[in-house]
Design a protein around this nucleic acid. Structure first.
Length: 289
DNA sequence: ACACCAATAT
DNA sequence: CATATTGGTG
């Protein structure tokens, strides 16, 4: 068990075995990771959850994280060298493909002679930036992570930015967290009125949270400085607490429409990432900002 | 620039 | 309904 996986550095192509490279695709032939393998049209036509778009930077960052995780070295892109490994979650997902049989779909081609003068914003893949992100879905797993981080930080430092960073979920924005945090706080407030009973069936997501009141603070208020600052010598590398109960969400209480995913639309990013993307909007007049 | 909150929009 | 977005304040 004491094996040490030696990472040999092949970056220098000294002694390349050229025979091995025969027949291998050249760089030009390989689809870049930054591009989806399945064209959006096809994906939506077949109800395949589209891959998330990744910019080159994101891909690189991910790679770096992975690499640094492997060799334990510091990547450099992350302020915290502690790479949070997202695979400590419980839970599994049953992969059920819906057996909807008679699927007659009409493939329709996109006609070009449609837009008179409307400046249809072209889907410029190259400018895969600032695209309208699909609504974030706070799946139980995601929420758990959120709660864990918040609990760990203590109410003191539980601010959107920090939370976002520690959650280390790709694609998660500060406003996502902010919005959720706002709601979460409301929930907590509302909840403590009742001591601890009969959580309203509303707040489904929150209803199952342990409501930790860890008011522990370790960092005193030296927080004036900007960027650098934490991690001085505090011992909070914290990959995570891996607490309690193996309880799956009890997300009931909602007689009305079915709840979310009966299968997909949300990958378990617990073991890989990606995330939602809602439906096939033909086009969205996405306003720019 | 960020956090917070209420209101509002999707 | 759950999120996103906005506007105002500190």
């Amino acid at each position: 068990m004491g094996e040490e996986a030696k990472i040999t550095d092949y970056s220098r192509d000294s002694e390349r075995v050229t025979e091995w490279e025969i027949g291998l695709p050249t760089d030009g032939d390989i689809t870049p990771l930054s591009q989806p393998l399945i064209p959006p049209e096809l994906a939506s036509a077949f109800s395949i959850s589209p891959e998330t778009y990744r910019t080159l930077l994101e891909v690189n960052r991910a790679s770096n994280d992975t690499i640094s995780a492997i060799r334990g070295g510091s990547g450099g892109s992350q302020a915290f060298s502690t790479v949070v490994e997202p695979d400590e979650e419980e839970e599994e997902e049953a992969d059920r493909e819906n057996g909807s049989g008679t699927e007659s779909r009409k493939l329709r081609r996109l006609d070009s002679a449609e837009d008179a003068d409307s400046v249809m914003l072209n889907n410029d893949d190259s400018s895969a930036r600032a695209l309208k992100r699909p609504r974030l879905v706070w799946t139980p797993q995601l929420h758990k992570r959120f709660v864990d981080v918040v609990a760990h930080l203590g109410i003191q430092n539980a601010v959107p930015k920090t939370i976002m960073q520690l959650m280390n979920v790709e694609g998660l924005t500060r406003e996502n967290v902010a919005s959720h945090l706002q709601k979460y706080r409301l929930y907590l407030k509302r909840m403590q009125g009742f001591s601890d009973n009969v959580p309203s069936s509303t707040d489904q997501l929150f209803a199952s949270t342990p409501v930790l009141q860890s008011l522990q603070d370790s960092s005193a208020g030296g927080c004036g400085g900007g960027s650098a600052g934490r991690s001085s010598h505090a011992q909070i590398p914290m990959p995570y607490p891996q607490p309690p109960p193996p309880h799956m969400m009890a997300m009931f209480g909602m007689p009305h429409h079915g709840f979310n995913n009966g299968g997909f639309q949300q990958r378990d990013w617990s073991s890989g990432f990606t995330y939602p993307q809602a439906h096939t909007h033909g086009l969205t007049p996405s306003g720019d900002k």
